[in-house]
Amino acid sequence: MTRERQNRVAGRRALRAAALMLVGLALASGCGLKGASQFAPDAEPGSVRPEPDLKDVRIVVGSKDFTEQLILGKMAVIMLRVAGADVVDQTGISGSVAVRQALERGSVDANWEYTGTAWVSYFAKPKPVPGREAQWQAVRQYDLAHHQLEWFAPAPMNNTYAFAVRSEDAKKLGVSKMSDLARLPKDDLTFCVESEFASRDDGFEPMLKAYGIPLGSKVPRGNVRTMDTGVIYDATDKGRCHFGEVFTTDGRIKALGLTVLEDDRHFLPNYNVAFNLREELARAHPRLRAVMEPLTAKLTTQAMLDLNAKVDVDGEDPGLVARDWLRSQGFVR
């Protein structure tokens, strides 16, 4: 499964190279971008009603091709169709750069994007802005000024880095937040991390320093195991390390019964999701905000984790998961 982590690994050089390759492939094939699946189930109006402002307005909704993005993309497709728009479903596009370039070119009108991804990867800003609201404001202002792209209000959900521990070990060690680690003996401070986060200037080593457990002294280097992203969850669950690097909305956290430690010193960057669209479209149809922002406000980290687990663990269809959740919240019937 492609994860949002791939967005964050790409630096400026990789972003440029991928963009050039995308353009070349598009020119060679003469084809537009294709989503992985255009199935989105029908729904009837709930709290979302048909909007005269949106009647028959053509809106191309794109998304990346990993589970969370597919679910969010299908939510947007369903909501906007119920509101009366003529929605073209382009969810499931392979690669973050492809989606971003499609939005900038106008072949996609809207998608869901993460504030941290835009700031760090797309805008190549070296330091995240602390705080959900402040990071979103910085991203919104930059994208409006440089790319004429609008960002609606961000969701509470934060698909960011975190460290998780087996729930039984959390109780045994008496830890619930990262600052608790400072009182543990060295032998208990064992970590599983992937190589990109381990080497970042704002990654693993600076994080340990911020929490008073510097690498090489409080945390012996031999206590740190570097491994592939997908292996870390299983390795943590099997006790190969006490603390594994995870993403806060990953369904495997729930499936494996892991406990995510609170980043109580707010060291890790914010990756709040928001509905991102062309400024021209947002200005021409102001009721889009009234349709989408109430949905965004309901997207918590726990809600997204549960929805991801329905697809990745239980094998349900992303479109049906999206519609059923929208029904449970009263947006549609």
Score class of each variant (00 low, 15 high):
residue 244 G to C: 06
residue 261 L to K: 09
residue 247 F to S: 06
residue 244 G to M: 06
residue 264 D to S: 08
residue 256 L to D: 07
residue 236 T to G: 03
residue 233 Y to L: 09
residue 230 G to C: 00
residue 222 G to E: 14
residue 252 R to L: 15
residue 222 G to N: 10
residue 256 L to K: 14
residue 265 R to F: 11
residue 247 F to L: 13
residue 268 L to A: 01
residue 232 I to E: 09
residue 248 T to V: 09
residue 219 V to G: 02
residue 235 A to D: 08
residue 260 V to A: 12
residue 260 V to Y: 11
residue 261 L to M: 09
residue 245 E to P: 01
residue 228 D to V: 01
residue 245 E to R: 12
residue 262 E to K: 13
residue 228 D to M: 01
residue 224 V to C: 04
residue 248 T to L: 14
residue 220 P to E: 03
residue 223 N to A: 09
residue 233 Y to T: 02
residue 257 G to A: 10
residue 217 S to K: 08
residue 259 T to Q: 15
residue 217 S to V: 01
residue 232 I to H: 09
residue 240 R to M: 12
residue 221 R to K: 12
residue 251 G to C: 09
residue 261 L to I: 10
residue 240 R to H: 13
residue 267 F to M: 07
residue 230 G to A: 13
residue 261 L to S: 07
residue 232 I to M: 13
residue 264 D to A: 10
residue 224 V to W: 06
residue 227 M to Q: 13
residue 225 R to C: 01
residue 253 I to T: 12
residue 251 G to W: 12
residue 258 L to G: 01
residue 266 H to V: 03
residue 227 M to P: 03
residue 234 D to G: 01
residue 235 A to N: 07
residue 244 G to K: 01
residue 261 L to D: 04
residue 266 H to D: 15
residue 240 R to G: 00
residue 258 L to N: 04
residue 221 R to N: 11
residue 218 K to Q: 09
residue 238 K to E: 14
residue 225 R to G: 00
residue 248 T to I: 05
residue 244 G to D: 05
residue 218 K to H: 07
residue 268 L to N: 05
residue 247 F to M: 11
residue 257 G to P: 08
residue 249 T to A: 13
residue 248 T to F: 03
residue 239 G to W: 08
residue 236 T to E: 04
residue 253 I to M: 11
residue 256 L to G: 03
residue 244 G to W: 05
residue 269 P to L: 04
residue 220 P to C: 03
residue 224 V to A: 04
residue 230 G to D: 11
residue 256 L to F: 11
residue 261 L to C: 10
residue 245 E to L: 15
residue 239 G to S: 06
residue 265 R to Y: 12
residue 216 G to W: 05
residue 225 R to K: 14
residue 240 R to S: 03
residue 239 G to Q: 04
residue 229 T to L: 11
residue 242 H to M: 09
residue 227 M to H: 10
residue 265 R to A: 14
residue 225 R to F: 07
residue 264 D to W: 07
residue 219 V to F: 05
residue 252 R to P: 00
residue 219 V to K: 00
residue 252 R to V: 14
residue 262 E to Y: 00
residue 228 D to A: 08
residue 264 D to Q: 06
residue 230 G to S: 09
residue 246 V to G: 07
residue 249 T to Y: 05
residue 267 F to V: 04
residue 233 Y to P: 00
residue 252 R to E: 15
residue 252 R to I: 14
residue 251 G to Y: 10
residue 229 T to A: 09
residue 221 R to P: 02
residue 256 L to Q: 12
residue 258 L to A: 07
residue 225 R to E: 06
residue 245 E to Y: 13
residue 218 K to A: 14
residue 227 M to Y: 13
residue 216 G to R: 00
residue 233 Y to M: 11
residue 237 D to A: 15
residue 244 G to A: 03
residue 238 K to H: 10
residue 264 D to L: 11
residue 267 F to W: 08
residue 243 F to H: 08
residue 221 R to E: 15
residue 236 T to D: 04
residue 246 V to Y: 05
residue 261 L to P: 05
residue 221 R to Q: 11
residue 269 P to S: 06
residue 263 D to M: 04
residue 229 T to K: 06
residue 245 E to H: 15
